[in-house]
Design a protein around this nucleic acid. Structure first.
Length: 231
DNA sequence: AGCACA
């Protein structure tokens, strides 16, 4: 048993991740991939020698973590099968919520100063995973509404995806859609962020993927809107 | 293989 005897935890520990992927991209993609199981509080990944190739995904519910451990076990992610277990301990962001958080006493004065600075910077910069991100969805929501008023195309083998966060990449979508039989390719247009086309072998297979991923949230603000492409 | 919280 891959989870060993680690008791269930709302945080999952993932290893065998592709170490070539940059930290920020890795976190975004993990967030994208795992938000299908529930609300994600945080994604932690460090590239230090000891911690590269590993990550923690903190869910709001243990049940979400359990489903993720089971269903995403060995999922090919950036060409490597993910190995997923429950985390061995409670995440800081969870401890902070339930009041049991005690800051670790490991730092020297120099480092503390550096950390305070970092935190200040982060507050400015925003992170996607905690939902306080500053990336604007206003424009996307508007174009989504407009597009929605258009007539629907007849079922066919190409899906039209809307309301994607602008930082979505084709490889992120590939990881989501390739789970479904008949997947052929993802196409995105540089000049048109927020949308994508996903091609399948036939319209039955595209329909299956549409049903499975309809409303899938890459971020809490971005439920996917999937329709058939106009031919 | 490796369980952290930059």
């Amino acid at each position: 048993m891959i989870t060993g005897d680690i008791p269930p935890n709302q945080t999952i520990y993932i290893k065998n991740l592709n170490e070539k992927i940059k930290k920020e991209e890795l976190k975004r993609s993990l967030y994208c991939l795992f938000s299908q199981y529930g609300r994600i509080f945080d994604v932690v990944a460090l590239k230090t020698p000891k911690l590269r190739g590993q990550a923690w995904v903190v869910f709001s519910e243990v049940t979400a973590a359990s489903n993720a451990v089971r269903q995403m076990q060995n999922f090919p992610f950036y060409d490597k099968p993910m190995r997923i277990q429950y985390a061995k301990s409670k995440s800081d962001c969870v401890a902070k919520e339930d009041g049991s958080f005690v800051p670790r006493e490991k730092k020297k004065k120099q480092e503390e100063k550096a950390e305070r600075k970092r935190r200040a910077e982060e507050a400015q910069q925003s992170s996607m995973a905690n939902g306080t991100g500053a990336q604007s969805n206003g424009g996307t929501a508007a174009s989504f509404r407009n597009a929605n008023t258009q007539e629907t195309a007849a079922p066919n083998n190409i899906l039209f995806i809307q309301n994607l966060p602008h930082e979505t990449t084709s490889s992120m979508l590939e990881m989501l859609f390739q789970q479904y039989p008949g997947f052929k390719e993802v196409r995105m247009i540089e000049a048109k962020p927020g949308i994508a086309f996903v091609e399948f072998e036939d319209d039955v297979q595209s329909s299956m993927a549409m049903q499975a991923l309809q409303g899938f949230k890459i971020t809490p603000q971005n439920p996917m809107a999937i329709t058939f492409a106009k031919k």
